[in-house]
Computed example of a mutant assay.
Amino acid sequence: MNSVLINGITMTYDDTGGGSDSAGSVLLLVHGHPFDRTMWRPQQGAAPGHRVVTPDLRGYGGTQVVPGLTPLSTFAADLAGLLDHLGVRRAVLCGLSMGGQIVLEFHRLFPDRVAGLVLADTFAQGETEQGRKERNDRADRLLRDGMSGYAHEVLDSMVSPATVADRPEVAAHVLGMMLAAPPEGAAAALRGRAERPDYTATLPTVAVPTLVVVGSDDVFTPVADAVFLHDRIPGSRLAVIEGAGHLPNLERPAAFNDALAGLLATVRESARDGADMTES
């Protein structure tokens, strides 16, 4: 684990793998709520030839907690600052759930720094009035009661029943991450997501290779949300991971990693084609 001062906070991250730092060779993995960088363990060794950067977001894992409200733009700026520190100009960004929304915000703010996108179990639409109230109420609850009650309530929705039965160690890992999440950090993220913008209009502007992936049994962001993204992002690929819930990268890592490998190969081909055109 590494740590660095970014935008006034101490951020922890893993930096693994080899390869050059050319466009498309760096993969930045962005975790969801209320998790930490360990949710990407099955992916850290699944991208040969790529440098894989896996941070704890502000308020989660080992990264500093800043109480209050953390907008998606702040998370995106932290990621840009981390890439600056690492000397990485462009990267493939992979985000799941809240991480996917952070990736969409990063693309909105820094499109020239994105070599490819993976949008996993996430959605682009803005928050509704009812959703805003529910997120703020949940933030209040986490600050008042801590993470335990919430974590146990949502576990069966985070992972599919098949995963709970067949891979109890995955369910235990997911529960452990949720229980360890700092309530102040999780609440600040919830309040920020309550104010998130609608990214629908930006989807047709995505001009990099994009993979949309979703668990077939995801109840938080169902397949219809993934189809919405896929239909609006030009040339995107859609992968539905059978037997997985909201966390297909943990529940069915082989299938998730196969889809990810296909996207990374496409990014590298695009980078080579661009270099060839420049040389000619």
Rank of each mutant, 00 (worst) to 15 (best):
M1V: 11
M1P: 12
M1K: 09
N2K: 14
V4T: 14
V4N: 04
I6M: 04
N7Y: 06
I9N: 10
T10G: 08
D21Y: 09
S22P: 02
G24H: 00
G24Y: 02
S25T: 13
V30C: 06
H31F: 03
H33Q: 13
F35R: 07
R37G: 10
T38L: 11
T38P: 01
T38C: 06
M39N: 02
W40K: 02
W40S: 00
W40P: 01
R41L: 12
P42C: 13
Q44P: 00
G45D: 11
A46C: 07
P48E: 07
P48Y: 09
H50W: 07
R51Y: 03
R51K: 04
V52C: 02
V53A: 03
V53H: 04
P55L: 11
D56A: 11
G61F: 01
T63S: 15
Q64E: 15
P67E: 10
P71G: 02
A76C: 09
D78Q: 01
A80M: 09
A80I: 02
L83S: 01
D84W: 03
V88L: 07
R89D: 14
V92N: 03
G95C: 02
G100Q: 06
G100P: 09
V103F: 04
F106G: 03
H107V: 09
H107I: 03
R108P: 02
F110T: 05
P111A: 10
R113T: 05
L117A: 04
T122K: 06
T122C: 10
Q125G: 08
E127P: 03
E127D: 11
Q130R: 13
Q130P: 03
G131S: 07
G131Q: 01
R132Y: 05
R132K: 14
K133A: 15
K133G: 06
E134T: 11
A139Q: 00
R141E: 14
R141A: 15
L142N: 02
S148I: 08
S148A: 15
G149M: 07
A151T: 05
L155W: 10
S157G: 14
P161M: 14
V164T: 12
V164E: 13
A165E: 15
D166A: 15
R167V: 12
R167E: 12
V170I: 14
M178Y: 08
M178I: 05
L179K: 09
P182Q: 12
P183E: 04
P183W: 02
A186C: 13
A186P: 03
A186H: 01
A186S: 14
A188T: 01
R191E: 02
R193M: 15
A194S: 05
E195N: 12
E195C: 08
R196I: 00
T200E: 08
P204C: 09
A207S: 15
V208N: 00
T210N: 07
V213F: 08
V214P: 00
S216H: 11
S216R: 15
D217K: 09
V219C: 07
F220Q: 05
P222N: 07
D225E: 11
D225H: 13
L229Q: 06
H230N: 15
H230D: 10
S236G: 07
S236F: 04
L238Y: 09
V240W: 04
I241R: 04
G243Q: 09
A244F: 01
L250G: 02
E251R: 04
E251I: 07
A254V: 14
A261T: 15
G262T: 09
L263C: 13
T266K: 10
A271L: 08
D273H: 11
G274E: 13
A275Y: 08
D276V: 11
D276S: 13
T278W: 12
E279Q: 12
S280G: 13
